[in-house]
């Protein structure tokens, strides 16, 4: 995500001021980097434990962050958007950019779910996630499915970085600051459930902002994690997670 945001900033500085072109450039770069790390690291880790993959992911995040810092330093950047007047919805003023961000996120979400549920490739991805051995004996070619999966991962990360960069200052810690929150949202929604991840992220985000009103911004994260703990105490598998039997 951080790389996507920085690529968008670079695209606006060196090629074109258009946010759309910046987003497309960001997605191309993050797809390329995603594939690079798949071939270099994750393909070799196939079959290893989830912990190995998690630690490797964090390691790669450090590499990407440090590389960005090496070239761009610690300066703060912004993704430039046209100056527009806020729209007034019965007294509630919303900037068009905010609505564009929400619309782009919704389109991406619908696209991801359509791909997972309505296309043969998506079904293969879900089958692989469900049971790798059964998928292999069913004739699913893991390598080609993983290639598409990593391309999509890169594209969505690039887009997410640009959308985040439109609302926040672009710094090397942009994505890293969200990492723990994203893990928390996924756990809250239920690991392995894409719909759960969306619901978890919404609950977590709303809980945080609501907590700002009650206890002030410095402590909002505490209240959000109390919500997480309460849900997990009542439903340890998360909101839409499944209890998996281990033999």
């Amino acid at each position: 995500m951080t790389l996507g945001a920085y690529t968008a900033v670079a695209s606006q500085a060196f090629f074109s001021g258009s946010v759309l072109i910046a987003a497309l450039n960001a997605m191309v770069v993050t797809v390329a980097v995603s594939l690079f790390f798949y071939f270099w690291v994750f393909r070799r880790l196939t079959g290893r434990s989830h912990i190995s993959l998690l630690i490797s992911s964090i390691g790669i995040a450090f590499v990407v962050r440090c590389t960005i810092t090496f070239f761009a330093g610690y300066d703060q950047y912004m993704i430039q958007t046209p100056i527009t007047r806020a729209w007034n919805f019965g007294g509630v003023r919303i900037l068009p950019t905010d609505l564009y961000v929400v619309a782009a996120a919704l389109v991406a979400l619908i696209g991801a779910f359509s791909l997972l549920h309505l296309t043969p490739t998506g079904r293969k991805m879900r089958a692989l996630a469900d049971n790798g051995d059964l998928a292999a004996t069913s004739g699913i070619r893991e390598k080609s499915v993983m290639l598409v999966l990593w391309m999509l991962t890169g594209a969505f990360c690039g887009l997410a970085g640009v959308l985040l960069g439109l609302k926040a200052v672009v710094v090397p810690e942009l994505g890293f600051e969200l990492l723990i929150l994203m893990f928390a949202a996924v756990i809250l929604g239920g690991i392995g459930s894409p719909v759960g991840a969306v619901i978890g992220a919404l609950i977590f985000g709303i809980a945080q902002e609501w907590a700002s009103l009650l206890v002030g911004p410095p402590y909002k994260i505490v209240l959000a994690f109390i919500v997480l703990l309460t849900v997990l105490l009542l439903r340890p598998q998360g909101i839409l997670g499944r209890i998996v039997a281990v033999r």
Partner: peptide, 8 residues
């Protein structure tokens, strides 16, 4: 035992 894709 795990002979079908349970999440599908």
């Amino acid at each position: 035992v795990a002979n079908v894709f349970g999440s599908m």
